[in-house]
């Protein structure tokens, strides 16, 4: 076991997860590949969504992979940062919107 939980070289081993459960692993990668094909959304739009979600999920592997993917698709760094802000806004908004629960509870409890 390495001294770090995350090793960039492990990203290259992602495909190996099929080794211990081939059927499920293959089904996952088939699904994954299909999701990112051009469809109603372009592959470029999907890449930017994936980049934003990579940040909200705080997945280092995903950030590594989708930053590179976005560059390959000609996405500018300004566009990438805006996508990250979209993720950040939803993440913080999701926290803040729960404030209404707190307000409801206070209003219910207080005379």
């Amino acid at each position: 076991m390495a001294n770090n939980y995350y090793d960039p070289a492990d990203l290259r081993k992602f495909g190996n997860i099929t080794q211990w459960s081939e059927e499920l692993g293959n089904k996952f990668f088939d699904y994954y590949g299909k999701v990112f094909e051009e469809g109603a959304l372009t592959a470029r739009e999907k890449s930017l969504i994936a980049l934003a979600v990579s940040h909200t999920e705080q997945c280092p592997y995903c950030i590594d992979a989708y930053t590179k993917d976005a560059l390959q698709r000609g996405v500018t760094k300004e566009q990438m940062m805006e996508a990250v802000h979209v993720g950040a806004a939803i993440k913080s908004g999701a926290t803040l919107v729960h404030g209404t629960m707190m307000m409801n509870k206070v209003n219910k409890l207080e005379m």
Partner: peptide
Amino acid sequence: PNGAYLPGDQAS
């Protein structure tokens, strides 16, 4: 490409 990555799909 402008760095250490491969070009994306040519048609796109």
